[in-house]
Design a protein around this nucleic acid. Structure first.
Lengths: 197, 197
DNA sequence: AAGCTATGTCAACGGCGATTGACTTAGCGT
DNA sequence: ACGCTAAGTCAATCGCCGTTGACATAGCTT
């Protein structure tokens, strides 16, 4: 057993890993609790000390921005299937936020940032690059820009609705919901010029 | 001039008016800044003293709940015209949040409450009563419940989109946006069973 | 006019959390 | 083996904010 385990006990003397752990904890806490979570909680969850937050990130606000950026790295729509997209999304939206923790965390993060004057302008750019641009490419066709806006808006709206609702839809209400929501999405992703001369 | 002006100088010795002023300031601050605004700011804006917040509302949390309730009293869809509804909404959504401060404040309040674990369950009830129920009545027709949910989700989504966008759409992008958004709303408010035997 | 009460003002307290700097020590280079 | 540096720990500080109780006074009642 000369093999060195990377994490046998509490991680010590590994700046990179510590920094990463703090960032990960920050992403989670900022999403779940909001900006007014304590650095002590974040550091605690990361198994680090508060002072290290300052050393590695400079301060709370800088950590927030960094965590916000990091939360947008994943690009989940890349592998969406065009043929089942509408129904898949609608079904997901009929469920609960808990079925989908990772996305929900990122989304709450986005909402918090969107409703904070300090981060809103910054978020605008981020949404452009990380959400609208990929969507525009994925959509293709004419006026892809404007259509991406519409699609993004509707998508966000249903995520909020699901968040507020808190629980899954059931029975006939669920069926009707899925049917109509998928109809909306189907319309939105269709190229309006398809079939024209 | 025996006429008594209600507010000649700083309002004094009028409990009701003071309470109302504090509540009004709270609605604004909670919406703009979030729960972590200071009571001193709220009181300051209301021209009152912090201690009065305790006297009239009991504490910060109680004030928050009261302000949240009060922010949901207005029911703006009551007098929407069914024939122009879709285009009116779409046009409004193509503009900026600043064109529409009152609605924007209420909406930001909703978002904040939705992203806070403490208030989310409470908000759920409120949204049911103040948003979904009126929408359901206004919509009418079959499956009005599920259709109201869908309409609410889409509506919320576009409000978020506008919030993030921050500026008005212009030129061709604006036209396409209004056209497609109003199409979505038109579909949503239509009774699916209309025209059936 | 006197006095009572509701209304408003003020200052202090207590806790909390971000920040900061001094201290400890692991891990590596020499 | 020795020490230097970077990584981690600890405790103190400072400011902020909600809360609280003591105090001042306007305005009504009698």
């Amino acid at each position: 057993m000369t093999e060195t385990f990377v994490r046998p006990g509490p991680r010590r003397r590994d700046a990179e890993a510590t920094r990463a752990a703090i960032l990960e904890a920050a992403k989670k806490q900022f999403a779940l609790v909001g900006y007014d979570c304590t650095l002590r909680d974040i550091a605690g969850e990361a198994g680090a000390d508060v002072a290290l937050v300052k050393r590695y990130f400079g301060g709370k606000e800088a950590l927030f921005v960094e965590a916000l950026k990091a939360s947008f790295r994943t690009n989940d729509l890349a592998d969406w299937d065009r043929t089942t997209f509408a129904v898949d999304i609608a079904t997901m939206l009929a469920g609960t936020p808990h079925d989908d923790e990772a996305r929900t965390h990122r989304f709450q993060f986005l909402l918090r940032a969107a409703t904070s004057q300090a981060t809103a302008p910054f978020l605008n750019v981020l949404v452009q690059e990380r959400l609208l641009a990929p969507m525009r490419n994925w959509l293709g066709g004419t006026d892809a820009d404007a259509r991406a806006r519409v699609l993004a808006g509707v998508y966000i709206g249903f995520l909020v609705e699901r968040l507020i609702r808190g629980e899954a839809l059931e029975g006939r209400e669920r069926e009707v919901f899925i049917e109509r929501v998928s109809a909306v999405f189907s319309t939105l992703i269709a190229d309006p010029d398809d079939g024209k001369s």
